[in-house]
Design a protein around this nucleic acid. Structure first.
Lengths: 192, 192
DNA sequence: GCGTAAGCACACTGAGCGGTGTACGTAGCA
DNA sequence: TGCTACGTACACCGCTCAGTGTGCTTACGC
């Protein structure tokens, strides 16, 4: 029986376990929560044996942290590196690229220990994101770009939290406010 | 041994168990999370026997829901019923009365099942709160008060979420944006 | 072709969880 | 004084969880 890659129901999926684990954790952590997802269930979803999982990750805490690191390349550059948009459009485009529940907020709420590596990383990421927004705001010619960056970051977090609680998308409202703030912060003479 | 009310370390605190349980749950759920707080620990903190707890609450789910209900009288009227403030001031005063981590957002994140009573209640509460804000906005003479209410609600949720993640208060930033939105929505002629 | 590294299967442990059963103590009211 | 409602003490159950031990199988590089 040499057949590998048996597909969904048959076990024995073979190499690339780490990737499958992180992919599965993205879905499960989002849908069921971090604490609500057991390692057994995660192994089943990733079609990976438990032993393999613990050879790739020191423990669940480690997995959570790596899980968060994963959003790094996904979210940050996707918008900010787009050269086909004007700086102002770039600031607004961020509101279209959103996760239904921001994984960093989720981690911050689900993990009570503030010194947990995942909490630390979430904090650093959020700061870095606000800085990126501020850079884009500066590029767009906003006066007080740091303030605008912080404001837009708050709007994004608000939309994520509110979407979670209400069950309906709140990013449109956030984008509306963002537009008003951006237009107020960018002098008409600089606007492109 | 007739001594009741022995104090912190001695057991046997006597009547008023329900109240003590809910008070303890407010602190523990906030500090350690809902899932991170065990019933045994909660009983110890409330100085209540486990048996008593389960005579007051059908189970942890019930306790969580009652825990949320508790914020009803605390948060909702405190600001909206103040007659010493102008309608505009009332809208802004909401940003001063904030919990470090909004318990409704916390419940929505920690409980994955969207049909859980606590989730339902959290959703209803958030809607009611936005409606209250809209009413106040209407009273203040805002055009499109429903929109302003929703916007302010989003700002509050954003500040709560961001405060949790960053560990530093974000309500000042939210209030700043709120001021701008309010002043833009209320015609100068109506302003008091 | 063979060694090695990666992965698999599965049983298992110890701890903590939510929740219960039982018997006892005590305060307040009639 | 004696009944009743509220609270206590503590052992206990079944379950789930994170994590481990052991032995086997498979794919890939030399």
């Amino acid at each position: 029986m040499t057949e590998l890659e048996k597909g969904p129901q048959g076990r024995r999926r073979g190499r690339g376990a780490r990737e499958r684990i992180l992919t599965a954790s993205q879905k499960l952590f989002r849908d069921q929560g971090i604490n609500g997802t057991g390692m057994d269930q995660l192994c089943a979803a990733a079609e990976v044996s438990k032993r393999t999982l613990y050879q790739h990750f020191a423990g669940k805490d480690d997995l959570i942290t790596e899980h968060l690191h994963r959003f790094d390349p996904d979210i940050l550059p996707e918008v900010f590196d787009r050269t086909d948009l004007t700086p102002r459009e770039r600031l607004l485009a961020v509101f279209d690229v959103h996760a239904p529940l921001c994984p960093f907020i989720q981690a911050a709420v689900e993990i009570s220990d503030p010194s947990h590596p995942a909490r630390t990383y979430a904090r650093d990421y959020k700061k870095a994101f606000a800085t990126r927004l501020a850079d884009a705001a500066r590029e767009a010619g906003a006066d007080n770009p740091d303030r605008l960056g912080e404001q837009l970051a708050l709007l994004l977090d608000g939309a994520a939290a509110r979407t979670r609680v209400l069950g309906t998308d709140a990013f449109a409202t956030a984008a509306e406010i963002a537009t008003a703030l951006i237009d107020a912060a960018i002098p008409a003479t600089v606007r492109d």
